[in-house]
């Protein structure tokens, strides 16, 4: 489990033009330098926002990652796919 590394690659793609371009061109290669498990790499490379959300990724970061890869015009698709926050609340400390 390398949750922090997942967030780091999402952050880098969201905030750095060079990382964003590299990921768009070859996500497998761009993700190669991050210490991800196979399952994590699959979620990231395929931009599986449903699974990434369930994994606990910060929603703001997740949306930023999505729009960086798919473009801001794809927000409706993102919102169709991403789970609701209420699905996470049971796991939160009171």
């Amino acid at each position: 489990m390398s949750y922090g590394s997942v967030e780091q690659i999402l952050y880098d793609v969201s905030t750095s033009r060079s990382h964003r371009e590299a990921f768009r061109q070859n996500p497998e290669e761009a993700s190669g330098k991050y210490a991800l498990t196979d399952a994590e790499r699959e979620m990231v490379v395929a931009v599986q926002v449903e699974d990434l959300f369930k994994y606990g990724i910060n929603p703001m970061l997740l949306m930023g990652f999505w729009t960086s890869v798919r473009g801001p015009q794809s927000i409706p698709e993102y919102l169709d796919r991403v789970p609701k926050l209420e699905s996470r609340l049971e796991a939160l400390p009171g």
Binding site: M60, L62, M63, V82, K84, L85, S87
Partner: peptide, 9 residues
Amino acid sequence: HWVGTGEMG
């Protein structure tokens, strides 16, 4: 407000 979650909006 809900940011980046399914409730956004």
